[in-house]
């Protein structure tokens, strides 16, 4: 996903702001609408939101960064959620996150340079019997270890490479 340019952001925001009164207490719904429109919260869009809602830019960022639902960079094609619920935690989910960070050369919460993967830590996804596990998009991969997890990523990566060659 490419980053939209500033003038484009401004235009797309006007449509969003039309639905609001411009009051500070609308911040969260405004942020949600922005994320729905862009897939993430572009910095420029947050600046415009601050001006529209007449609240400080730093407050907009403070609130946005508090909630895990908001992201500050475009998400990858696939979202990898590493479960860190109690069962997975005990089963060394931390090592899985670490391994994937090394494999993708990113940190938890970031998106890989090729735009394919976003890595996220989440709390329990509700399949504790499969611990430790990851979810890639809607698919659950259970009973993993760090090496197996990295292999899943490599496989997905290859599929994309082949698609591109075709």
């Amino acid at each position: 996903m490419s980053m939209p340019v500033n003038s484009e952001i401004k235009e797309r925001l006007n449509g969003i702001f039309n639905a609001f009164a411009g009051k500070g207490n609308e911040l969260i719904p405004v942020l949600q609408s922005i994320q729905e429109e862009f897939g993430y919260l572009p910095g420029e869009a947050m600046k415009h939101a601050a001006r529209f809602l007449k609240i400080p830019e730093s407050t907009v960022f403070g609130v946005a960064s508090f909630y895990s639902q908001f992201r500050f960079s475009p998400a990858g094609k696939h979202i990898i959620k590493v479960c860190h619920g109690t069962a997975c935690h005990v089963a060394n989910a931390g090592e899985i996150t670490e391994k994937l960070e090394t494999r993708l050369k990113i940190k938890d919460g970031e998106t890989s340079d090729d735009g394919l993967f976003t890595l996220e830590s989440v709390a329990c996804v509700g399949c504790c019997s499969l611990a430790p596990l990851i979810m890639v998009d809607d698919e659950v991969y259970g009973k993993l270890d760090p090496v197996k997890a990295a292999r899943i990523v490599s496989r997905l990566s290859r599929t994309h490479g082949e698609k591109q060659e075709q």
Binding site: P56, S58, F61, S65, F66
Partner: peptide, 9 residues
Amino acid sequence: VDALQFANR
């Protein structure tokens, strides 16, 4: 000026 705010959680 509101340059600063708490961020994250």
